[in-house]
Amino acid sequence: MTTHVKTSEEEEDLFTRGVSNLWTKVNHIALVVSDVGRSLQFYTDVVGMRQILRPNFDRHGAWLTAGNVDIHLIKGRPAVHSDDDLIVSHVAIEVDKMDELRVRLAKLGTKSRKNISVPNPEENNQAVDQAFVRDPDGYYIEFCNCAGLDEYLHQTPVGEKTWNLGKAHAVASASKLIRRMADDSRRMIEKKKEIYQKKLDHGQLDLSVDYEEDSDDEECAVDKIKLGNLVQRRKVYGDITQNTQDVAELEGLLKRYKNDVPRVIRHLEERVWRKGTHTYIPPAFYDRDGTFYQPPSFEMKLSSLTNTDAHRDQ
């Protein structure tokens, strides 16, 4: 009996994701802008990028370089954020001296916003600082001192000295298992939605009240630790707990379901399906004039959410 010995290519395929072994780096980021000249002035005179040669395309545009990645400006219809919060697509640029950056931006007449909900692991010696600037069309450029954070995130885990094929294969297998579990969870959520919709279609639900029945009237003291965890979750943008009015309602739901958190979450899921929208409360930030600003909540229709978006609430 002949034993097949796997080649290096076959071994690599065991833990290669998608086409990751076929590309090397990000070449450029393309932005559709309404006025190429105006945007070119901003990215050269304010951001400080350098314009480079551009082939003779059948459309107007300009190319710039930031050193490690290029920016391509294309004339057209911009697709930008409404500017009412900082949950925005953006290009991030590393800065060593954030204070000097803000002084320079002020001299250039360019205002910025400061994000206050930024990751800052205790092991990272330097607090992460961000300044968001908007270009003439509304695209965001983030200046940040994020090099220290990157070093922390990419360091070798404690106790790990080497990375071998066996460990890589184990990680790949675990990743496949997690993906299968995520797919199973999404299918379960979709099945629950179908059951709920059938009841709704047949008039078996009263939309004016919460569907799930109350627990009995026996008094139940609220678990302060579970309440604290739910309150913390409510600060996470798009979490299912943001579909409550306030902390008092979370406390009431814990009391109602005798501190059974899964039943509280199921209650909120049914509320979301019933109203057909999901509540989002964006994180607060410091506005361009330095004032603290909490963006208002808004509703997003469930039809506009992908399965992945819905599952991320869990």
Rank of each mutant, 00 (worst) to 15 (best):
D83Y: 05
E10C: 03
R102G: 03
C220N: 13
G67T: 15
K258R: 14
P262D: 04
R104D: 15
H28M: 12
L105V: 05
D289A: 14
I29Q: 07
W63T: 05
T156H: 08
R102N: 14
D85P: 04
D313F: 08
F15A: 03
D96M: 01
M181T: 10
S303G: 14
G159K: 02
T7L: 06
N21D: 11
E151G: 12
S20G: 03
W273G: 05
V236R: 14
V5W: 00
L268N: 00
V91Q: 00
M1T: 12
V32L: 04
A221C: 07
Y293M: 04
C144R: 00
K235V: 00
R17N: 12
S175C: 06
I195A: 06
V272F: 02
N115K: 00
K258A: 11
H72F: 14
I265W: 01
E100H: 10
I189F: 11
N307T: 08
G228Y: 07
L73E: 08
L149V: 14
P119V: 05
I265P: 00
N307G: 15
G166K: 10
N124A: 12
N27Q: 14
K226F: 03
D289K: 10
R186D: 13
D137N: 04
E142H: 05
V133W: 06
E251F: 00
F15G: 03
R104G: 12
E12W: 10
A248P: 03
S208G: 13
H81V: 00
I281E: 10
K199P: 00
A147L: 05
R179M: 10
E94I: 08
P295A: 11
K6W: 06
I74V: 15
T244E: 03
L53V: 01
V26K: 12
N145A: 07
K258E: 08
T291E: 15
A174C: 02
P55Y: 09
L230A: 06
I29Y: 06
F42L: 11
V33R: 04
G148H: 13
H154R: 14
V247K: 15
K25A: 15
D216M: 11
S20K: 09
H4V: 10
G203K: 11
T156S: 13
V32G: 01
N68T: 13
T241N: 06
N125V: 11
Q204N: 08
G238W: 08
V158Y: 09
D99I: 09
L230N: 05
K111Y: 00
V32N: 07
Q155T: 05
Q314C: 06
K192Y: 01
E9A: 11
F285L: 03
S39H: 02
K199Q: 09
R263M: 14
A131F: 08
V272M: 10
A174M: 02
Y140P: 00
S208W: 09
A182I: 03
